[in-house]
Design a protein around this nucleic acid. Structure first.
Lengths: 264, 264
DNA sequence: ATTGTATCTAACGTAACGTGAGGTTTTATA
DNA sequence: TATAAAACCTCACGTTACGTTAGATACAAT
């Protein structure tokens, strides 16, 4: 009542914005106040407070300034559609954040148990959670649906437990790289990894058989496609590990499976 | 196995990134591949796939690239703390998004009932939901806590109903501005608004009395503070409405309250 | 005459790339 | 063998919504 216009500083306080923000809105034509012809100072009217409120509110709803500008001009905004759309976008964002939080929880649970974690192993585990959907999609190319279902139909808790065990045993592998494959210690660790796989999917041998069958298919897919399963091991480590595993399987009598294959 | 290095295009496909992204990571020193001395072409080794996976994963967890850079260098990252912190940030973000979605739901419910809504009224209603926390805080300066509790302790559904009624009646006001305050039509609309207030808080007269008492306090606060309650009316509309309301109250016999005040 | 306050314009910095523009090398084709 | 296509390179501007100096101007108070 006392004054029906504000200078920019006062107006910024009233609208809980900053001078710079008002300058910017002026610059992009979102809110052009009156000007004194001499000094060029900006003068805002009382009614323009509401305009700022509109802008702030729409910003809060997640609109970028250029869309806000259109909404302010269009007196007959197609609000309904716009708001529904905005809502859907937010719901998607929320899903993403939920997934990120879930992933972080897994990560923290891994760290809880293993006081020091090799960064590479850690990344691999996080990645396996993060990319779950893509992994499934990829596996559908080679493995029958029911096997995939079995593998991924597992509770978060169980998943966390497995992750902890993997972190532990993979760390052991990293320590042992370069030593004798036949060493008892090495074979124990490989056995532990095998146990984890077995725990995850009791018919693991079927899956391995299946993978052996479609090995060529897989290779062809891998040639051009992105790498979906990052390995926490260096090339040298991987080669060493492959040796150790093949020796383990030999000792364990993997021949049974080979027999089975030949009987088809 | 066939080759142990990749040119940038191939590597981009493998890591599911773009050439530009890899250029950028090189530029900021996040991932510097080998170069041919002659042409300057970049060559990436197999092991660098894992580095990219690390970057992608940490990005997914919401880290900015400069923090990722530090994490990649620090072999003994203080991951635990970092991840917990990150988690908290995400939880806050999720809360904000939830609030935004809730606000949008209110907005959509208003639009559902009133096929055309005045933008100014609409903004005011959204704002009242959006700023609920600040409004409460502000009211604590003048109004006893239990009154605030009573006002805001109201279900979302009821809130939505009230919003619809407010949208409708305020729209009526906008139509009537300028006509005779004493007109029956005008007085009916003002009465409807009064009913809404009464519905929201049966002891509305107590609150008004209280506000009348601390009027000076409020004025003092309003002088320097941001405008928390945006009005959907222009200055002229507000003046007209004030008149209409005071006539309504006179007719209704607001004198009782005035009496009460003098009896203190 | 000087100091302080409020304002102005101009212009760079931010994050993480996308998107050309214009130039070079190597490979494939007419 | 001339040329066109692939794949690469280095600038360098555009994007969002302001924050942050820097230097200049107007006006009021000391």
């Amino acid at each position: 009542m006392t004054n029906d216009y504000y200078r920019i500083g006062e107006f910024a306080k009233k609208t809980n914005t900053t001078i710079r923000t008002l300058h910017y809105y002026d610059e992009i034509g979102l809110l052009k106040p009156a000007r004194t012809s001499k000094t060029g100072d900006r003068y805002y009217s009382t009614n323009e407070i509401l305009t700022v409120q509109k802008i702030v509110t729409l910003k809060y709803l997640g609109y970028p300034l250029n869309k806000i500008q259109k909404l302010l001009n269009n007196n007959e905004w197609d609000l309904r559609q716009s708001l529904s759309f905005q809502r859907e976008e937010l719901v998607i964002k929320r899903q993403q954040i939920n997934h990120m939080i879930k992933t972080l929880d897994h990560a923290l649970s891994i760290l809880e148990e293993n006081q020091t974690v090799d960064p590479n192993i850690f990344i691999m585990l996080i990645n396996s959670i993060q990319m779950e959907a893509e992994h499934k999609e990829w596996m559908r190319n080679f493995i029958p649906e029911h096997m995939i279902q079995d593998i991924y139909n597992i509770s978060d808790e169980k998943q966390q437990q497995l992750n902890k065990r993997v972190a532990k045993e993979f760390a052991n592998i990293k320590k042992l790289v370069g030593t004798d494959h036949n060493d008892e210690h090495v074979q124990t660790v490989v056995a532990a990894i095998w146990d984890i796989l077995y725990d995850l999917y009791p018919n693991i041998e079927d899956i391995i058989l299946r993978i052996t069958e479609v090995n060529d298919d897989i290779d062809r897919h891998l040639a051009e496609a992105p790498v979906l399963f990052p390995s926490p091991f260096t090339v040298e480590e991987e080669e060493w590990l492959a040796q150790a595993i093949s020796i383990y399987l030999e000792k364990k009598g993997m021949e049974k499976i080979e027999d089975k294959k030949e009987n088809d």
